[in-house]
Nucleic acid binder design. Structure first.
Lengths: 235, 235
DNA sequence: TAACTATGTTACTATTGTTAACATATGTTA
DNA sequence: TAACATATGTTAACAATAGTAACATAGTTA
């Protein structure tokens, strides 16, 4: 029994240490409103933010619900009022990522002549850049793991992203709708950029002896995979 | 204290159930040699096999060291005589996968005229097929997560795989060595096939409204990304 | 004010990866 | 063959996790 007590005390001691660390971390956070000390204000949003941060810092496996709780300053049971499971929270992180990616794609496309090789390759550049900037989130966005019952919901947001590319390719081809031709032209572009993203974040770009300039690679692939300017009519 | 005893008994009861399940699983395994009942024979190999199986069945997250132990019929501490950690075991699964992929690539290339579009696209087909057949292992093979101190070792095996493609592209281009031209031609091919693999295993091929035939996609991309037959001279 | 609902908490369960201390089999050498 | 060293197992325990249940409080509405 004495042993048990010692054990418990040791646990609490450790907890104390951990708490202090996390407390320090919390201070760096932006908007902390302790308006009631019991009810949190925006726990849901802050948990997602904490998850994003932790995932990018320690990878999706290094992320734990408990850590997110400590960051948000709540008990480990609190998240389950807002998310049905850890995976459910991760799904929201992924969804958020997809939405941000879509917005960035649209933004970068709009900065070039619409329907040009430049605008299309700009979309690709943004795509790869996102992957490199937030590799773990990116991996999460495109994985069926987790996301238990919400794959369709996620896919819907993904379709939004893809739609940006499709629209731009349609403009390039002079098509008014997203025709089969548009889709079949756009798909290899996506594939290419997607593969490049994964190779980049998985550190595989140096297996080849020559350094790969990512932006060059995107542009080159775009040029090769799009039909040349003078053949831009329906096959 | 009574409570504690009840708790312990319940644990043992559960363990009993689990043991039976796993026992049933074990029977389906092929080579079980219980030559000494203490020393196992080939625990290392069987743990890798168990890991492969469990990973493909429940995903890399659903895989637990404990499950692998139960499958192999040893205690949870036993693996640590052969692997320094769970990740270390996973690294061996990944390495094994890369080796098998490389062998399959070489095999399929050899079944076509060397240095032809057919042999090159055959390599791509095998690549994607592997990903679809063993998606979780494939993901593991190309992820920097885990694999703690052994990334270089893994990369070396990966270079072997890539070498198969490089050699075939070199033949296509009529080059004797793996020149810069060869590498720059092969790289987008790899990217394309790699992206296609990930999109396929992540269930993203149906975001486009038209069904994607993977083999067609590989062939088409190969044709577009390789310089045409009549331009096969150094740029 | 009273009742209801949303959102927290504490305490607990079951499970995991990993280590330490111990035990036994196998191979090598006196 | 006996003694030892090494490789390879075991049990018991630790620290951490995801998730649940029972309870508590804040905010909202009748």
């Amino acid at each position: 029994m004495l042993l048990l007590l010692t054990y418990v005390r040791r646990i609490n001691f450790r907890k104390g240490i951990r708490r202090k660390k996390i407390e320090a971390l919390r201070m760096t956070g932006k908007k902390i409103q302790k308006k009631s000390a019991y009810h949190h204000g925006d726990l849901r949003g802050q948990l997602i933010a904490a998850a994003r941060r932790l995932i990018e810092e320690h990878g999706p496996d290094g992320f734990s619900m408990s850590d997110a709780c400590r960051l948000a300053g709540v008990s480990t049971a609190a998240p389950y009022r807002h998310f049905s499971s850890k995976n459910d929270l991760l799904t929201d992180v992924a969804k958020d990522g997809l939405q941000r990616l879509g917005a960035e794609m649209e933004q970068s496309a709009s900065e070039h002549p619409r329907g040009s090789i430049e605008s299309i390759s700009a979309i690709g550049r943004v795509y790869v850049a996102f992957a490199i900037r937030e590799p773990h989130t990116f991996r999460l966005m495109f994985s069926t793991r987790s996301h238990s019952g919400r794959i369709e919901e996620l896919k819907q947001v993904g379709r939004g992203c893809y739609g940006v590319l499709l629209a731009e390719v349609a403009r390039y081809l002079g098509e008014d709708d997203i025709t089969e031709w548009v889709i079949k032209t756009a798909f290899p572009l996506w594939t290419q950029v997607h593969g490049l993203s994964f190779l980049a974040i998985d550190g595989k770009l140096d297996v080849t002896s020559f350094p790969v300039d990512i932006n060059d690679a995107v542009l080159l692939a775009t040029q090769r995979l799009l039909p040349p300017q003078d053949e831009r009519q329906k096959p």
